[in-house]
Amino acid sequence: MTVTTAAMVRRKRRSGRPIWEEPPTPAGRVGKALLLALVVLAVVFPLWVVVITSLSSQQTIDATGGLVVVPQGITPAAYLQIFSGGVVTRAVLVSTFITAAGTALSLAVTALSAYGLSRPGSLWHRPLLFAVLLTFLFGPGIIPSYLVVKSLGLIDTYASLIIPTALNAFNLVVLRAFFMNIPGELIDSARIDGAGDFTILGRIVLPLSKAALAVIGLFYAVGYWNAFFNAMLYINTTEKWPLQLVLRLYVVNGAALPSGGSSGPQSSIAGMAPAPTLSLKMAIIVIAAVPALLIYPFVQRHFTKGVIVGAVKG
């Protein structure tokens, strides 16, 4: 793909349909609009129902017989109660910490490795790259992986949720390809000025790669936030549970929230009726979805670019 053709297509589209293309039939036009509307609705509708129910009062829930589609009497009671301390609050903190620490570590390791392997002709870069690419061909399997984590004494530590997944080979290869596309003249001229490789990476390569780092950072962050199976294997203490395990226990498995419908030690906030159990559960779902929703708009404009550069360009 060359940038020019893509830009040309886009320019042509903005000015409407190309001259040679026949106008669509009314049926075709309606059909396509319906199809796309249906697709969008299929994604948005479940989220809408969950968000509205999480904000509904007991009366509304009783009136509708369960989930609420049309908002009536919006109240943030469920969120206030969930964040007043207790299982969910703690899980949100744990997940936030793991996501922040993990993403920082992952980005650092990935950028270092990607740059270290990106300089043409450097010592041993071929065998090292081969060792990276070989990891695509086979996975080690869950049981030996568990035994390694266990023998390192990482069971039931937060480190077990970060270190084993800290470096993703695919992200490494994508970032390396991005680094290799940085004009060599920039790097050479810095070297003439006496910069070492660490300086070049920090002062030239990284500042030029913000878009790629943003996308890869998003992938890592989402991976850490969503990690479920590793936590299920490695974490034994309930106090250390990340949010996904809490979500599974109370929503997927339908366990009763602790102390009579409340998520915290105190059953409700002073002066407020306790939030409905269903709203509390829906609120947990919403909280689990929020980080993706929050970071997404900032990074979205980068990914068509970033992902395509990594995936299609050869």
Binding site: P46, W225, N226, F228, Q244, L247, R248, V252, I285
Partner: peptide, 13 residues
């Protein structure tokens, strides 16, 4: 960008 736990939860609801 949603986890499987979240997707299964939504389908369940």
């Amino acid at each position: 960008f949603f986890s499987w736990v979240l997707v299964v939860s939504l389908f369940q609801q």
